[in-house]
């Protein structure tokens, strides 16, 4: 029971991370293609300015919880995914400092350098998180001692790449919507149009992914065993459709919330399908890591549950309050402030 609760919490933490940092990563990927001048670029950076750091902590929390609640899973997952994970981390490093460094020296070459870093550090992690999770869904070659018997090329299989593409598309739409919320005038209109167009591409990738999931993974088994669970992907699909509707009527906040719901439930769709596996072995199902054979002791799980139940709601409260406090569009006055990016 404790293991199952933790399995769910583990999934939720990843889902919230993808929902929050998703728009940062998507917007970073979109940046070179959507912004037409320096002012627009700055609006884009500052739209994420107060939030990206807090968003990224969800990744640290997800990682920490994996370590605390499922140490064996943590050890095997991250050593198996050694290269992609380090690429993600290096990406997030250059992305994070790009925010802070870019505007600090008034030189075109300096800005271009950090624009490139910001793009690579957004696109790379978006893609690789998708590749990593698609591979987890379909299983990776780990042996009985939890040692990875493949290379980075093993992970770059068609289904893995499809997963990467899905994440990138989800985040692009999500990011474009965030920009529409935070900008005004021409840029807002362009961001909204971009979100609308990208949505169709997302739809195609999502449908292909869902079909491929049927053939490449066992995710649907849990759903056929408990059809009531189909509620989750149903919410995903409805939310995705709602995104398009809200884009059409130019309700950016609503579209963004629908997009958030899409990302959260899409992640949960995969996680629920995975249960009780956390890291299925493609060599032999007996080698798979599950919520049960990789969990911490009951005492640790209990203490951590108390910690999570106390602190996570508090975090959500103050983080949401922060979003509410700085909910306005990025104005010229904002751009003129000393601390603006």
């Amino acid at each position: 029971m404790l293991e199952t609760i933790w399995f769910l919490l583990w999934g939720i933490l990843w889902a919230v991370y993808f929902m929050l940092d998703g728009f940062d990563l998507g917007l970073g990927t979109l940046n070179p293609f959507i912004s037409r001048n320096e002012t627009e670029k700055r609006i884009l950076y500052n739209s994420m300015g107060p939030f990206w750091d807090g968003n990224e902590v969800w990744l640290i929390a997800a990682g920490g919880v994996t370590f605390a609640a499922f140490p064996t899973m943590y050890a095997v997952m991250f050593s198996a995914l050694y290269s992609p994970l380090l690429l993600i981390l290096f990406g997030l490093i250059i992305r994070g400092v790009a925010f802070e460094f870019r505007g600090k020296i008034d030189n075109e070459g300096w800005r271009v350098l950090w624009d490139i870093c910001h793009f690579l550090g957004s696109f790379g992690p978006a893609l690789l998180f998708g590749v990593a999770f698609a591979n987890i869904f379909q299983g990776i070659p780990i042996d009985g001692r939890g040692v990875f018997q493949g290379s980075i090329l093993t992970l770059l299989n068609p289904y893995g790449i499809l997963g990467g593409l899905l994440f990138v598309m989800l985040f692009l739409v999500h990011g474009a919507l965030w920009l529409a919320i935070k900008s005004s005038g021409d840029l807002e209109a362009r961001a909204g149009r971009t979100a609308g167009r990208l949505w169709w591409a997302l739809l195609v990738v999502a449908v292909v992914f869902l079909v491929a999931t049927f053939f490449s993974t066992n995710l649907y088994a849990n759903y056929f065993a408990n059809p009531v669970l189909f509620v989750v992907p149903l919410v995903t699909v409805s939310a995705l459709l709602a995104v398009r509707w809200f884009i059409a009527i130019k309700r950016w906040w609503k579209a963004w919330f629908a997009s958030s719901l899409t990302i959260v439930t899409a992640t949960l769709f995969g996680i629920i399908g995975l249960y009780p596996n956390m890291l299925p072995s493609s060599l032999n199902p007996k080698y798979s890591l599950t919520a049960f054979n990789s969990a911490s002791s009951p005492l640790t799980l209990k203490i951590m549950l108390v910690v999570a139940l106390v602190f996570v709601p508090i975090v959500i409260l103050y983080q949401a309050w922060g979003y509410y406090l700085l909910r306005g569009k990025v104005t010229e006055e904002d751009l003129a402030s000393d601390e603006a990016y």
Binding site: G54, V57, A61, G64, A68, Y74, T300, Y318
Partner: peptide, 21 residues
């Protein structure tokens, strides 16, 4: 692992959210 997880949830969130604000 649990100590690192507590660090993230109890303190690092607080630090990162409020530094942005």
């Amino acid at each position: 692992g649990s100590l690192l997880a507590i660090e993230a949830t109890a303190t690092f969130f607080l630090e990162s959210v409020f530094i942005g604000l």
